[in-house]
Amino acid sequence: MGKFTNFLEKLDSLDRRVIFLIIGLVVLIPLLIPLGLPIETTNLTEDAFYAIEDLPANAKVLLSFEYGPSSKPEIHPMAVSVLRHLFSKGNEVVIMCLWPDGLFMANEALELVAHDEFKLEYGVDYVNLGYRPGNEAVIKGITKSFEANFSVDSRGIPISQIPIMQDVQTARDVDFIFSFSAGYPGAIEWVLYAGDPLQVPVSSGNSSIQVNQLLPYVKSGQMKGVIAGMPGAAEYETLLIQKVEGKEGLLVNKAHALLPNFKENRDATKFMDAQSIAHLVIVLFIILGNISYFVKRKKQQKY
């Protein structure tokens, strides 16, 4: 018992580099030797998934990319999954970016999903309007007119010549807004300046750190669910595969043929083993750290 107490006391003054090394190893090993832990879906992700699932076939969805390479591991898998979901249902997609790097992220996701997988026609099934500076002023601007803010798309085509934009003149004309957000401007700005004033449903995929801040909006119905970080993205991937496998709801023919592709290329699910084990180790550290703190305090009180 005395030895254990001594060990706990020493833990308090453990070199932080040892902790870094342990975390590094517990992340690295499951990446090299996957365990295939099961993924359980949660209400937050299900709400976001079914909000999109319930959209009719002719619905137009506005996706906004507000993240860059620094938050790509968390958010990019969501963007890929949401695009797959929308195209599987035959929905049309209008993309815009409020972060300059968002344009590269959007192009990368579209190249994979719209071009390589679904082989869709640019301008008819989807469009990428590109990046515009101005943060929430751009959101406010498109509630009045897309053309005034995006006279041309990311390829330099005037939006008056893009078929999909013919009946999308303002943000009011889209049926759903989805923001992939890693900070400001992001999901909150979409609720404040577009979702609430226009009464257009908004949902979002976020970096984990923002999720708590968004929960009040979900609780009040101002936001339809949230995809929370990498675990949320893995849940979304699972829900999408379940839908396509079970042939549930609206589904275009191509989607079923792409099922092996969806199963093969799901980054978030692939990384979840490492994530879960790292969480487990961190929880252990917290417990040990707290026990060590209390043991030390008790000892100090004795003297």
Binding site: P73, E74, I209, Q210, M230, P231, F271, A274, Q275, H279
Partner: peptide, 12 residues
């Protein structure tokens, strides 16, 4: 949530 996010980035 922040720890979760940081681990995700490390995994990336």
């Amino acid at each position: 949530f922040a720890v979760m996010g940081r681990i995700s980035l490390l995994i990336g």
